[in-house]
């Protein structure tokens, strides 16, 4: 991959910001607009930017495909697991009230976990998609 100086400098500058914004959206989700879907996509956008600028090898070096695959599955597991946990705690499926001592804290905890799961899965899947499309282009 040819190096584009301006692109790589701008990218290096932007990527941390985008990542930070992703985390903001992720954890602010239970108070305001935001949540796992959006945060996951924003996170993925940062990684995809890295992929486009620095190439597949560089990106895969710090986010390997195997990790992404596990991440994609793990997110779903967290989501469904929270539901099952609330079952085990004596409530209904996805009834967050029972997850902590009082209902409000329970709702907080529950939504946080669920959104985390969603975020991980969405980010992982988006990055995986980008990886596989990128790969195809080079082989063909």
């Amino acid at each position: 991959m040819k190096s584009h100086l301006i692109l790589s400098i701008v990218a290096k500058f932007l990527i941390p910001l985008v990542l930070l914004f992703a985390f903001y959206v992720q954890f602010h989700g239970d108070f305001g607009p935001g949540g796992g879907f959006q945060a996951g996509v924003i996170f993925a956008a940062a990684v995809i930017l890295h992929l486009l600028v620095f190439g597949h090898a560089a990106t895969e070096h710090f986010i390997p495909t195997a990790v992404l695959k596990i991440g994609a599955a793990l997110g779903v597991l967290i989501y469904a697991g929270v539901g099952v946990a609330s079952l085990l705690a004596g409530g209904r499926y996805l009834d967050y009230d029972v997850l902590a001592d009082n209902a409000v804290a329970g709702q907080h905890l529950g939504i946080l976990l669920v959104e985390a799961g969603v975020g991980i899965t969405v980010a992982a899947v988006m990055i995986l998609l980008a990886y596989s499309f990128q790969q195809r282009g080079h082989d063909a």
Binding site: H56, E60, T65, S132, Q135, R136, D139, A140
Partner: peptide, 9 residues
């Protein structure tokens, strides 16, 4: 060979 690389780069 393309098929095999599907999702497994």
């Amino acid at each position: 060979d393309f098929d095999d690389q599907d999702e497994h780069p």
